[in-house]
């Protein structure tokens, strides 16, 4: 069965269900957060499904104890809460002891648009990538989301997986390994857009628009935010005269920062423009499209700003 068209969260959890059904040492801890596809897990694999209540700090510590005891643990909650509310526990227990626990954050960026800044995860990349040993994954389509469940299950490192919501169009074909950490999803000659997650789709749209202005734009999906595949990134970047980074994350510390750090540290001098969320909380609410407009990340504003920069 192809995962194309499947809800991205369901794609991840359906694969995790199969993994857990085959390995009774896999445990799923949730801080009282559900999902359509988790109902089957809860019903059929009841002994492996533990709702710890709205207590993210304890969820991380309990996951730590279970892992020290030999279990393979996945923890799940809304992205801002499962990273920031329990950051200290993640730092000391998971990162500090380098335990192979997978943290699943539902709703990265401004997925939970009109729910406001409490529910927005726009600093999580910045803080999570500061933790030694932490692998950060951000699937951009259901095929990749499904594969990432398997990758994190087989990993010996802590992992943070940011999972969007809804039916994102398929970019990849089933069978992809996703071991490179990044992928050029559209080729081009003049400009390279580097994006992650949902914004890869926006990058593809902008690339189409730029074509009308005779700008042949490539799009890179940086799906493994940490560790970045530095050599592959540098190889790819060297073929372009200009680079745009595009993310639904604070301008401080996200993938734009990560890319810049690598370019600077390797003496790669290429003009870069970062498009991200301004360093301020939103004060007006709306759906995701409206919020993008509010933050200047809607297609038209982005296009105009890129053209003005070029």
């Amino acid at each position: 069965m192809t995962d194309a068209g499947l809800d991205i969260r369901d794609a991840f959890f359906d694969e995790l269900y199969d993994i857990a059904a085959a390995d009774s040492d896999v445990l799923f801890l949730t801080a009282d957060m559900g999902a359509f596809s988790l109902e089957r897990f809860k019903k059929n694999l009841n002994r492996q499904y533990i709702n710890v209540g709205v207590a993210e700090q304890n969820m991380i510590s309990v996951a730590t104890g279970l892992t020290l005891g030999g279990k393979k643990v996945f923890v799940y909650a809304v992205a801002p809460f499962v990273t920031m509310r329990c950051y200290e526990q993640i730092k000391v227990n998971i990162s500090g002891m380098c335990l192979p626990i997978t943290i699943i954050g539902a709703g990265p960026g401004i997925t939970y648009n009109s729910d406001g800044p409490t529910h927005h995860a726009v600093q999580d990349i910045a803080i999570m990538r500061a933790l030694p040993g932490m692998v950060i994954l951000n699937p951009s389509d259901p095929v990749m989301a499904s594969r990432m469940a398997r990758i994190s299950y087989e990993s010996h490192y802590p992992a943070y997986v940011r999972i969007d919501k809804g039916r994102l169009p398929a970019i990849y074909s089933p069978g992809e390994e996703f071991s490179d950490g990044l992928s050029l999803v559209k080729r081009g000659r003049d400009l390279l857009i580097i994006a992650t997650g949902l914004m890869v789709h926006k990058g593809l749209k902008i690339a189409e628009e730029l074509k009308k202005h005779s700008i042949d734009t490539a799009v890179m999906d940086l799906y493994r935010i940490k560790p970045v595949n530095v050599s592959l990134l540098l190889d790819s970047v060297s073929q372009y005269g200009r680079i745009v980074t595009l993310e639904e994350q604070s301008i401080i510390g996200g993938i734009g920062s990560a890319v810049m750090e690598i370019l600077v540290d390797h003496g790669t001098m290429v003009p870069v423009k970062r498009f991200a969320l301004e360093d301020k909380y939103c004060e007006r609410y709306g759906d995701r499209e409206w919020m993008h407009k509010h933050y200047g990340l809607d297609d038209r504003t982005l296009l105009n700003n890129i053209l003005a920069w070029l």
């Binding site: 533990i50 700090q57 304890n58 991380i60 510590s61 309990v62 996951a63 730590t64 104890g65 279970l66 892992t67 020290l68 005891g69 526990q89 227990n93």
Partner: peptide, 8 residues
């Protein structure tokens, strides 16, 4: 919490 995880 770690102790609770080990005990569980």
């Amino acid at each position: 919490g770690i102790g609770a995880g080990l005990s569980l």
